[in-house]
Simulated assay, not measured.
Amino acid sequence: MSARQMHPDLHPIDDDLVRRLIAGQFPQWAGLAVERFPSGGTVNGMYRLGDGMAVRLPLVKGGAKDLSTERDWLPRLAPFMPTAIPEALGAGEPAEGYPWPWSVYRWLPGENPEAGALSEPVPLAEDLAGFVAAMRSITLPGAPEAHRGGPVASLDASTRAAIEELRGIPQEGVDCDAVAAVWEDALRAPRWDRPPVWLHADLMPGNLLVDGGRLTAVIDFGCMGVGDPACDLFPAWNLLPAGAREVFREALGVDDATWSRGRGRTLSQALIALPYYRRTNPVMARNARHVIRAVLAEAEAS
């Protein structure tokens, strides 16, 4: 499906626009090949620029702020990271009818992992735990608040609305009473009452790169900031099978309350994404269905 169908306020982008933007602002790269990179992303369009770079352009206005956040913070975070993270090589400005800032990054090799098809799930779980732990250990001052990093209750209205919307889509086969019970459990969990920690805040499979089954890079830090550590437990349900999930949890020493909040947050994201993207973004919809199944299976087993 085309990106234009995902949101009502998308700005159209294409190869020719990217070539004009590059030629006008980075003439040293004007002769390099430009090719749209297929992605399940929902906020940015990605283009390969030559062999060693990527161009990232927001598809919606909100994505422009994310790029500014990355430009400010990624150079400061990089020394603390156990894996590669994006490195901005150029800061593009609005031009050629394109209304927002955009960026050129160094290309990071690897492929996105896929839930249910991991070649090294336990080592990958350990790698992910190492990345999350490294983020949590950062003490840089002046951190922004992470997107989704606040109380679970702040997601209540949108989550309940999504559950009711899914009741009206029986072909998706979601057990809405069961997911509502898991959500209620997350709401009952004690809030995080210690200092907020640094978070990536969007650890979806599409923001992870692996090689040989092992984590090599984490990308798209637009949601980063400080908040509830439960927010970075997403891979437990959106990617890892049950055994590796426990390895991930044990490596991070996650208490029951934080685990419940993390499971609820991951479920909330999936419940909201499924009705919104089910006809426009197969990657997001597929992962949302996976999360719902994984969460309900864990709840039934506990």
Score class of each variant (00 low, 15 high):
30 A>F: 03
30 A>G: 02
30 A>T: 04
31 G>H: 10
34 V>R: 01
35 E>H: 09
35 E>L: 11
36 R>P: 11
36 R>A: 14
37 F>K: 10
38 P>K: 06
38 P>S: 08
40 G>C: 05
40 G>F: 00
40 G>T: 02
41 G>A: 08
42 T>D: 09
43 V>G: 00
45 G>L: 02
45 G>Q: 08
46 M>Q: 04
47 Y>N: 03
52 G>V: 03
53 M>L: 15
54 A>M: 15
54 A>N: 07
54 A>S: 10
56 R>A: 06
57 L>E: 03
58 P>D: 08
58 P>M: 12
58 P>F: 04
58 P>E: 08
59 L>S: 04
62 G>E: 15
64 A>E: 15
64 A>F: 09
67 L>R: 08
68 S>A: 14
69 T>N: 11
69 T>Y: 11
70 E>Y: 03
71 R>M: 12
71 R>T: 12
73 W>R: 05
75 P>F: 05
78 A>N: 05
79 P>M: 11
82 P>K: 12
82 P>I: 08
83 T>Q: 14
83 T>K: 13
83 T>P: 00
83 T>W: 09
84 A>F: 06
86 P>N: 10
86 P>R: 09
88 A>S: 11
88 A>Q: 13
88 A>H: 04
88 A>M: 13
90 G>A: 14
90 G>L: 09
92 G>L: 05
92 G>T: 09
93 E>F: 11
93 E>I: 15
94 P>G: 11
95 A>M: 10
96 E>M: 10
98 Y>I: 10
99 P>A: 12
99 P>H: 08
101 P>A: 11
104 V>D: 01
104 V>A: 05
105 Y>Q: 00
105 Y>W: 14
105 Y>K: 02
107 W>E: 08
108 L>T: 07
108 L>H: 03
109 P>K: 10
110 G>D: 04
112 N>E: 12
112 N>H: 14
114 E>Y: 07
117 A>D: 14
117 A>P: 01
117 A>M: 12
118 L>G: 05
118 L>F: 06
119 S>R: 14
120 E>V: 06
122 V>I: 15
122 V>K: 04
123 P>R: 09
126 E>M: 07
126 E>G: 06
127 D>P: 05
127 D>Q: 05
128 L>T: 07
128 L>P: 01
128 L>M: 15
129 A>F: 01
131 F>C: 02
131 F>P: 01
131 F>L: 11
131 F>S: 00
132 V>M: 03
132 V>N: 01
133 A>N: 09
134 A>E: 00
134 A>K: 00
134 A>L: 08
135 M>Y: 04
